[in-house]
C-alpha cells in the first residue's frame, strides 16, 4: 500500500506544490528548477513514447497471430510502419526522398481527405440537428449560415442591399461582427469556466481527492 499508493500520491503532492510555488518566485534558483523540470519532462516523454510503439506492434501482432477478422489490414499497418521507418533512417528526410514522398502523397493525402469527409457528415448532421425547432436553434442556424456565406466570395456578391445602402454591411461584415462580438462573448464566458475548472481539478489532484489518473487496482 505504501509503495503502490501513498508514495505516488506524495510525489503528486510534492511536485504540484513545488511547481505551483515556483511560478511566484522570480529567483534564479526557481527558474533553474523549472528549466530542470522541463528537461526531465521531455526525457520522461521520450521514454514513455516507447509504450505507444510497443502497444501498436503488440495489438496488431496479436490480431495477426490470432487470425482475427480482417487481420490482413494489421499486416498492412505493420509493413507500412516498418517501411516508413526504414526509409527515414536509411535514406534520411530530405525533400524528394521516399520518406518525404510517403509523407506528402500518402499521409497528407489520406489525412486531408479524411478531414474533408467531415464536411459532408457535419452538413448532414446539421440538417438533422438544426431544423429550426425553436428560436434558439434558429439563431444557431442563422449564425452558421451567415458565417459560412461571409467566408466565401458568394456572400459578398449576393449582399444586394449593400449596393442600395452602402452603409449596411455585407455578409462578410455581418459574419465578422458575429465572430468578433457575440461569439467572442460566448467563448470568453466558456474560457472563464474552463479556467476555473482546470484550477479546481488541479487542486483536487494535488490534494489527492482525484485519483482516477492512477488507474484501478492496488
Amino acid at each position: 500500500m505504501l509503495w503502490k499508493k501513498q508514495i505516488p500520491l506524495a510525489i503528486t503532492f510534492i511536485m504540484g506544490l513545488l511547481l505551483g510555488i515556483q511560478y511566484f518566485v522570480p529567483h534564479r534558483i526557481s527558474e533553474n528548477f523549472f528549466q530542470g523540470y522541463l528537461d526531465w519532462a521531455i526525457v520522461i516523454g521520450i521514454f514513455a513514447a516507447i509504450l505507444s510503439y510497443i502497444s501498436f506492434y503488440r495489438v496488431h501482432g496479436m490480431r495477426i497471430k490470432k487470425k482475427a477478422p480482417a487481420w490482413q489490414y494489421s499486416v498492412v499497418a505493420i509493413v507500412m510502419s516498418v517501411t516508413m521507418a526504414l526509409f527515414g533512417f536509411i535514406q534520411g528526410r530530405e525533400e524528394g526522398m521516399v520518406f518525404m514522398n510517403m509523407y506528402s502523397y500518402i499521409l497528407v493525402a489520406i489525412e486531408g481527405t479524411m478531414f474533408s469527409l467531415l464536411a459532408f457528415y457535419i452538413s448532414s448532421a446539421a440538417y438533422r440537428a438544426f431544423r429550426a425547432r425553436s428560436t434558439q436553434a434558429t439563431a444557431l442556424l442563422l449564425a452558421a449560415i451567415i458565417v459560412m456565406l461571409g467566408r466565401v466570395p458568394l456572400g459578398e456578391s449576393i449582399s444586394f442591399w449593400h449596393n442600395i445602402w452602402p452603409s449596411l454591411p455585407t455578409f462578410t461584415g455581418i459574419a465578422n461582427w458575429i465572430l468578433n462580438v457575440p461569439n467572442m462573448a460566448a467563448k470568453r464566458g466558456m474560457q472563464l469556466g474552463i479556467g476555473l475548472g482546470i484550477m479546481m481539478l488541479s487542486l483536487k489532484i494535488i490534494l489527492g481527492i482525484e485519483r482516477s489518473y492512477m488507474g484501478s487496482g492496488d
Binding site: W3, K4, K5, I7, P8, L9, I11, T12, F13, I14, M15, G16, L17, L18, L19, G20, I21, Q22, Y23, F24, Y37, A41, I44, A48, Q191, L192, I194, G195, L196, I198, M199, L201, S202, L203, I205, I206, Y213, M214, G215, G217, D218
Partner: peptide, 28 residues
C-alpha cells in the same frame, strides 16, 4: 504496472502545479 504510477504521478503532479497559476493568469 503499479511502478508506472511513479512516472504518472510525477508528471500529473507537476502538470497540476503548473496549471493552477497559469490557468488563473491566462484563462481567468
Amino acid at each position: 504496472s503499479w511502478l508506472s504510477r511513479y512516472a504518472i504521478c510525477f508528471s500529473v503532479g507537476a502538470g497540476s502545479g503548473m496549471a493552477i497559476p497559469r490557468s488563473m493568469q491566462a484563462q481567468v
